[in-house]
Computed example of a mutant assay.
Amino acid sequence: MNHDIQTAANAIRDRLNAAFPKTVLVLGSGLGEFGDKIDIEAIIPYGEIPGFPVSTVSGHSGKLLIGTASAVPVACMQGRLHVYEGHPIQQVALPIRTFRALGAETLILTNAAGSLKKEMGPGSLMVIEDHINASGRNPLIGENDEKIGLRFPDMSEVYAPELREKLLSAGTSEALDLSTGTYLYTTGPSFETPAEVRMFAKCGADAVGMSTVPEAIAAIHCGLKVAGVSLITNHAAGIAAHKITHDETLSVGALSFEKMSRLILRFLPSIN
């Protein structure tokens, strides 16, 4: 495992003229346009990084962008990898471990999610307080490399409280009405049934999606600080009055992109 990380890290390092940024941003469905807000210094397609699978999902371009945003050095995954694409969950975690090996310290995870709360409708932004892994899978399954992290890492505070507070403060500065809540992860790719949605709500979830949690677990394991934000693109099945589609996810993501963009651009300078 450590060899795969170092091979990927070396391939990225060879493409850079400066140190790898300490902050990494992962863009969810419909949020890829944030790349236009970055003053680009390097663009590396995933296919040119050993071990990085190529993203196959609409709305995920599959490029690593290196540059600055709000005058802050940042690396940006323009599109993420998903277990439902057929990638082993350990491979989904490889980019996160690679970034840590390159010197990253903070990981900002964004996603598109379905709301389990009627009052949190499409276009809302939810700062993630905690998560529920309902997938039955974990990127740490298998032999543990102590050079990367502990065999049994603590998950009491996956989403750093100080980063949550800074996100909420950034939202206030931008006059954005932010919610906070718990994100529940399923592998997908099928959307949830109404019965599953009712169960998830009773379990304490506020939003549901098909990403983020494997990356967050891997990040905590290797020592990164984590922040997370969900862009609510729809009400989940049984709450929504219509059938759910990925096209809706992308269209609402595009319409609400500026809100997420303003939040992240305001938040970035507060990290360092």
Score class of each variant (00 low, 15 high):
139 P>I: 11
168 L>Y: 00
262 R>D: 05
30 G>E: 04
57 V>L: 10
46 Y>H: 03
192 E>C: 08
142 G>E: 09
45 P>F: 10
194 P>S: 11
113 A>G: 09
198 R>V: 13
115 S>K: 00
116 L>R: 02
128 I>V: 15
97 R>V: 07
37 K>T: 12
232 I>Y: 02
183 Y>R: 08
82 H>N: 10
107 L>G: 13
43 I>N: 13
178 L>K: 12
172 T>H: 07
231 L>R: 02
13 R>L: 13
121 G>F: 00
257 F>G: 14
26 V>E: 00
206 D>Y: 02
92 V>D: 02
197 V>K: 00
82 H>G: 12
235 H>F: 03
179 S>E: 13
104 A>D: 01
63 K>P: 07
38 I>Q: 04
189 P>F: 07
254 A>N: 07
41 E>K: 14
96 I>F: 01
90 Q>I: 07
38 I>M: 14
160 A>D: 15
243 K>S: 15
178 L>T: 10
154 D>Y: 05
107 L>T: 07
180 T>A: 02
213 V>I: 15
34 F>M: 15
216 A>H: 03
91 Q>N: 09
154 D>K: 06
192 E>D: 14
245 T>E: 12
31 L>V: 14
174 E>W: 00
45 P>I: 14
243 K>D: 15
227 A>E: 05
20 F>R: 06
20 F>M: 11
117 K>D: 09
243 K>I: 12
54 V>S: 06
80 R>V: 06
252 V>M: 06
94 L>I: 06
191 F>G: 12
9 A>E: 00
130 D>G: 01
241 A>V: 11
238 G>S: 10
198 R>G: 07
101 A>N: 05
7 T>P: 01
43 I>R: 15
2 N>P: 03
23 T>H: 04
174 E>A: 08
139 P>G: 13
171 G>N: 04
56 T>K: 06
23 T>S: 03
166 K>C: 04
213 V>P: 05
192 E>N: 11
4 D>Y: 02
105 E>L: 09
34 F>N: 09
157 E>A: 14
169 S>G: 07
69 A>G: 09
70 S>F: 11
128 I>S: 00
86 G>K: 05
251 S>N: 15
127 V>T: 06
64 L>Q: 05
58 S>W: 04
92 V>T: 10
260 M>D: 03
57 V>W: 01
251 S>M: 11
126 M>H: 02
37 K>P: 05
149 G>W: 03
154 D>W: 00
83 V>T: 08
269 P>E: 10
246 H>W: 10
143 E>H: 07
104 A>H: 04
156 S>T: 15
23 T>W: 03
180 T>S: 10
68 T>M: 05
243 K>F: 04
153 P>C: 10
70 S>I: 09
221 H>P: 04
42 A>S: 14
139 P>V: 11
136 G>R: 04
203 C>D: 05
256 S>Y: 04
220 I>F: 02
122 P>E: 00
150 L>Y: 00
175 A>M: 13
165 E>Y: 05
36 D>W: 03
113 A>M: 05
203 C>M: 15
246 H>E: 11
124 S>L: 07
